[in-house]
Measured scan of single mutants.
Amino acid sequence: MPSETPQAEVGPTGCPHRSGPHSAKGSLEKGSPEDKEAKEPLWIRPDAPSRCTWQLGRPASESPHHHTAPAKSPKILPDILKKIGDTPMVRINKIGKKFGLKCELLAKCEFFNAGGSVKDRISLRMIEDAERDGTLKPGDTIIEPTSGNTGIGLALAAAVRGYRCIIVMPEKMSSEKVDVLRALGAEIVRTPTNARFDSPESHVGVAWRLKNEIPNSHILDQYRNASNPLAHYDTTADEILQQCDGKLDMLVASVGTGGTITGIARKLKEKCPGCRIIGVDPEGSILAEPEELNQTEQTTYEVEGIGYDFIPTVLDRTVVDKWFKSNDEEAFTFARMLIAQEGLLCGGSAGSTVAVAVKAAQELQEGQRCVVILPDSVRNYMTKFLSDRWMLQKGFLKEEDLTEKKPWWWHLRVQELGLSAPLTVLPTITCGHTIEILREKGFDQAPVVDEAGVILGMVTLGNMLSSLLAGKVQPSDQVGKVIYKQFKQIRLTDTLGRLSHILEMDHFALVV
């Protein structure tokens, strides 16, 4: 994948999101292997301009796509893939009243899908469409860049269908997702969380590099694949309309690839034109409109599966009536509230959605109805927002919020430890010299600072030695090549209790 991002070429006709291997024109390309080798690009942008032909009021008969309808489940399912879809609609009884809503608040519980998330729908649909058009064949390999849930859905379907599955996901995604993927037989590649989507090191860039190296491999490409919004247009939206008897006044959905909100909203605009569509985008993402909503100094966020630093091709923002931004604290607070007060075992993005819903639905009156999409299960986040310690460490809970008995030293300040200034190293000294210094002084790690004293990161003896043994660096290389740029900081005025929580999850903390 090139470091400079080429513009994806656009073909003359058809839909841009065809499933299957992508040609340089962004659509299915038939021909000899030699032709494909000559024409197939190194990668295709996940934010390529959409060429979708959908228009409100256009006859369904003019759609270029294969459409399906929700099917009634048999008493005995032939395999677990038949437990994807037909998820329950559940009334939220307490939270709406707590925040003064007059309307009825309903939750579409997508964590009841077989793999635990709304992404099971698009995973199965992308595979079925690729099999139907002859792209996927027995023994082929599926590769997908994902925040985890699409990966789980694909790995689940691949396990049943017999495909090899490789999932490329950023490091910030939970260990629970990784464990589930491994249990399903998927191979996992992790990428830096802070890598831009168009960087060769991003999950998108690495996935395309693997595709170019592995024979008979395919990126189904949830960011561009029409099967993504079509899955929701054909099934999720129809289920909502049936469950609500066609009567709903507002739908609120958090947005990642945009397939969920695009597919549902398009069908609702056709069948229930008075329904307002509300999009939820986390602070630090750029999906919301108008652009002024996205202006923030924050560039990272903890909530998973929603928000991006690019506009995915499948996201149709014209069908969203209003956007709201959400933050991590309210997302996790509301997710825990949904679990504790409503018994809905949902993930953090569901918290984002409901946090926005109780604001947006203030305009609705008694007798009206708001539906929220709860995308995934708490299963993926047992060591994250479900953990009091994690919430404390991230600053989303305060010590006084917890009532468990603490040891005698818990409320003492870090400054009472009488710490001395640490050994520091410059980023320009060599790895070999740094190892000598650390061994001589008896230290395992040291902060790396520039000549102005600005902290650049941390270097550890173990990481340097393993990097040297693996051949990633040489003793003569500058130590700046092996620094940890993500590390926890703590102030002298913070409590030892807070430091204790940090050290339970990290090997060190830097006192500043």
Rank of each mutant, 00 (worst) to 15 (best):
P88L: 05
D35C: 04
Q242T: 11
P70A: 14
D179P: 04
S61P: 12
Q222I: 01
K83A: 10
K108C: 00
A71T: 15
L230K: 09
R196C: 08
S27I: 11
S147R: 01
L184R: 01
I264H: 06
P78C: 08
I76G: 07
R161C: 08
Y163K: 02
K25D: 11
S254K: 09
T53V: 06
T191L: 02
K72S: 03
G26A: 02
T257P: 00
K247I: 13
L106P: 07
A69I: 05
I214Y: 06
G274F: 12
S32E: 15
G116S: 07
C109Y: 05
E171W: 05
E187M: 03
T135G: 03
S254R: 06
C165I: 04
P138V: 08
L181C: 03
K271G: 04
G134W: 07
P12A: 11
G31R: 10
A253P: 02
G20Y: 02
L154Q: 02
R164N: 08
V206R: 01
L81Q: 07
N228M: 03
K25S: 10
S199Y: 05
L248E: 01
K211I: 10
R121E: 03
D129C: 06
T135V: 08
R18A: 14
E37S: 14
N225E: 00
P74L: 15
K271T: 14
S50H: 07
R45K: 15
S123L: 07
A253S: 07
A71K: 10
E34N: 02
G256Q: 01
I264R: 05
K97N: 12
G246S: 08
W54V: 06
I95A: 03
G31C: 12
G134V: 07
D133I: 03
G100I: 02
L101S: 00
T141V: 14
T257W: 00
Q222N: 02
A71F: 11
P215S: 08
C275L: 06
L106A: 10
E270P: 04
Q242P: 05
H66P: 07
T53C: 05
R51T: 09
E110G: 01
H67W: 05
T135M: 13
Q243Y: 07
S217N: 06
N93I: 06
E201Q: 06
L81F: 11
K97Y: 13
K39S: 03
E4I: 10
E9H: 10
D238H: 09
